[in-house]
């Protein structure tokens, strides 16, 4: 199953930030996936040259429709094409779902802390959407570190009141007016005593961010075995 390449048609593209895109694709025969999993996307040039990159699924299973998050990387080979060139209605090849580790399963009990840096919010968004859809009782919280307010993905959805999801945005360079916390990198105080309880922590973002958050969590007494990480770049 994992080796099978599906044909996937782009049905919709939405801008999340200046360089972040949501891509909605239809994939006939898609078997479904777990929140947190990713796919490989394969592009083929006219001379047969191929390039493949991995992208996270941003939403739980919804029939044959999937949602990917793509952050265009400057000078990237694949991401700028997916973000701005691939025409709506055109197809790419895709395989998956991939990854059995950085996943949240609906039956999983216990509180969950999601910690995302930048576009690392994509796979954890699949988890919090699944949590919401399942009407799961386990407490969910999201700490989301972004450079400035323009870099927030899923802005309206994350700002919407939800008594079973606690969202906190941390700004590293520029905070919006009225924000009490001065801009700065995530620190132990942000992960504070309230976050030190039991349960699973999912950390996703650039390597430096993930290293720093995982170290802080271990320093706060979180067992290493409870911390699951996914990195990019």
């Amino acid at each position: 199953m994992a080796a099978h390449w599906f044909g996937a048609r782009l049905v919709e593209r939405r801008a999340q930030t200046a360089t972040g895109r949501t891509l909605v694709l239809d994939i006939p025969g898609w078997p479904g996936h777990l929140p947190g999993q990713h796919v490989d996307v394969r592009l083929t040039a006219d001379d047969g040259y191929q390039a493949v990159r991995s992208y996270s699924l941003a939403a739980p299973t919804d029939g044959e429709r999937v949602e990917l998050g793509v952050q265009a990387v400057r000078d990237g080979e694949v991401s700028p094409y997916l973000a701005d060139v691939l025409p709506t209605g055109a197809r790419v090849e895709l395989r998956g779902p991939l990854g059995q580790w950085f996943v949240w399963r609906t039956g999983q009990s216990g509180p969950v802390l999601l910690v995302a840096g930048g576009s690392g919010v994509v796979p954890v968004t699949a988890m919090l959407r699944a949590h919401r859809a399942a009407r799961s009782d386990s407490a969910f919280s999201l700490l989301y570190s972004v450079r400035d307010p323009d870099e927030i993905w899923y802005r309206e959805e994350l700002a919407a009141p939800d008594d079973r999801l606690d969202v906190r945005v941390l700004y590293t360079r520029r905070a919006p007016r009225g924000e009490v916390r001065p801009p700065g990198r995530i620190a132990a105080a942000d992960l504070g005593p309230a976050q030190a309880g039991p349960g699973t922590v999912y950390v996703c973002g650039p390597t430096g961010f993930v290293e720093s958050v995982a170290d802080l969590l271990v320093g706060l007494g979180r067992p290493a075995a409870d911390i699951r990480t996914e990195r990019f770049g």
Binding site: R42, L43, T44, A45, D47, G48, Y49, L86, A90, V92
Partner: peptide
């Protein structure tokens, strides 16, 4: 190809040193 119209990709260098589906990087992820 019927997939990914308008995709050109990078120059086809290093093909014999690069296993299928890989891309070269200077960093160490």
């Amino acid at each position: 190809t019927s997939f990914s119209p308008g995709f050109h990709g990078r120059p086809r260098a290093l093909a014999d040193r690069l296993p299928p589906g890989q891309y070269p990087t200077e960093s160490f992820p």
